[in-house]
Design a protein around this nucleic acid. Sequence first.
RNA 1: GCGCCCGUAGCUCAGCUGGAUAGAGCAUCUGCCUUCUAAGCAGAAUGUCGCAGGUUCGAGUCCUGCCGGGCGCGCCA
Length: 578
Amino acid sequence: MQTIYAAYAGHLNTALDALEAAGTLPGGLNRGPITVEPPRDPSHGDLATNAAMVLAKPAGMNPRALAEALVAELVKVPGVASAEIAGPGFINLRLDAAAWLTELRAIAALAGDYGRSAMGGGSTVNVEYVSANPTGPMHMGHCRGAVVGDALAALLEFAGHKVIREYYVNDAGGQVDVLARSAHVRYREALGEAVGEIPEGLYPGDYLVPVGEALAKEFGDQFVSAPESEWLVPFRTRAVAAMLAEIKSDLALLGIHHDLFSSEAELQAAGKPDAAEQWLRAHDLVYDGHLEAPKGKTPDDWEPVELPLFRSTKFGDDQDRPIKKSDGSWTYFGADLAYHFQKAESADALVDIWGADHAGTVKRIKAAVAAMTGAEGAPKPFEVKLVQMVQLLKGGQPFKMSKRAGNFVTLADVVEMVGKDVVRFTMLTRKPEAQMDFDFDKVVEASKDNPVFYVQYAHARIRSTLRKAEAEGFAPSADALELLGAEELELIKLGAQFPRLVEGAAQAREPHRVAFFLHDLAAAFHAYWNLGNDKPEKRFIVAQDGKLTASRLYLASQIGQLVRNGLALLGVEAVEEM
RNA sequence: GCGCCCGUAGCUCAGCUGGAUAGAGCAUCUGCCUUCUAAGCAGAAUGUCGCAGGUUCGAGUCCUGCCGGGCGCGCCA
């Protein structure tokens, strides 16, 4: 659907065409910087455009003179009640009530699809998020990226993209060998051996106990004193599968389900990194060279080694980066670039959600993707959204989590204590690139004050009103919407911004904007509701006036629809009662 | 030392890709339940948008330089 703002931007263009045709305005001016937006201050009107200010200079005209000419055209547009010049040359438009009531009917007609946009044009966006190492359950450090990625995926879908939700399983590096060794200890333990403290460097968490038991059941004691080379691969495979199952069930607690889990090990087995290396060498983007010593602190044991290096310095990186280790295995980066190339084959654009601790590797991967997808024509759009660290606190004290140390706050624990909706909404009420504190105790204690309930409460009130009205024999109806007054129109105007908001948020890849919009909408609704506390004639249900009641119920019903549409994007439930 | 992110009310944060008089929540104070849900509303109070320059009709927003905080800077992942 077209937003009301886009529709009037179209009318504005027509008006500008008319001025050109009349010779008032020279042709060929760049209209790019022109905006049609709701003014920040609603008292200025419904729509504001900067057209006169933007065009005055290149046209060699006085902004006010141009604005006056434009206003003369704009007042002819249907739905425009008034057009005024203000400030340095803004043109403020007011729309008549009918224009807004039409928008209200559109919400009803489109229902769950109100706000859905064709902006994406059906192009496919691959959103990779979570991608936590399969070495243990999800903890709170993973939570923010998971929620942001999931909400972004839903948002992009709503904005007209096909979306692939993807999880990259790092099942090929050293960390999964450590996992296999840790599982081997638990395996021996399950067979009755007193293993004591879990050795330094292995994962000590209890979550590996059932893995050890399963291994004992499957293999008996055949690997108890066998050399590592005999059991490493089967133990690794089974432990990774078990961890992945645990991660999936943790994600399900948050309502997160990926479409695709891509295995790094399979990627390597399929020879993808080799193919990528060949291609990059052919294009002189990989060469054999010596790695510089690391910046900052140079370790004592540093010695230059010859390695295949990717020319990331050509793309603004500090140094060229190795794609293989000296033992011939792939570095994380070497496999990751092949992985991104694989993703790009089935998507028109890529988005990665990463933790900020990986910020240092953004340049090299962006460089690699640009090089590999841009060989013919324009490179595939690829963005890395960095989600800043969540600093975990317990009772105001910083709490360092470590999977190695076995002390971490699991996602499952937090979801169990405060609920999925609180966790999701909390993670979405700030922009992802800002750091945030997450005080476990405070969140549990203050979960009742969470803004999510404010939004849900608005929905619950609407539903409760509709239920009561139905019991009293009233039904929503659009037959007499002209009875709605200024206060109702204000609500409609706010709600009508939802489609525009969806497009803006999708374009900026900022799902948190939806959460803030919902909060604003809920605030406007609660304020409207409370008018009825003082003045019974302002309530939704006015027993003496069936037509007015039906119209207000219709409005309430559509506001409820908007709240549901917004919450659906965030993956938060719209409750019927509280 | 270098790179990325952040700095807005006492605290936690928005600020719609440069618009008009910078906004919410929490905390504090004052009112509002015989009522469609008070998990709500109305009002009061709170600011050198880190600092200094620059760009232009116009800067919290863009550029440069400082200051402060976070993250990162090995063939780890």
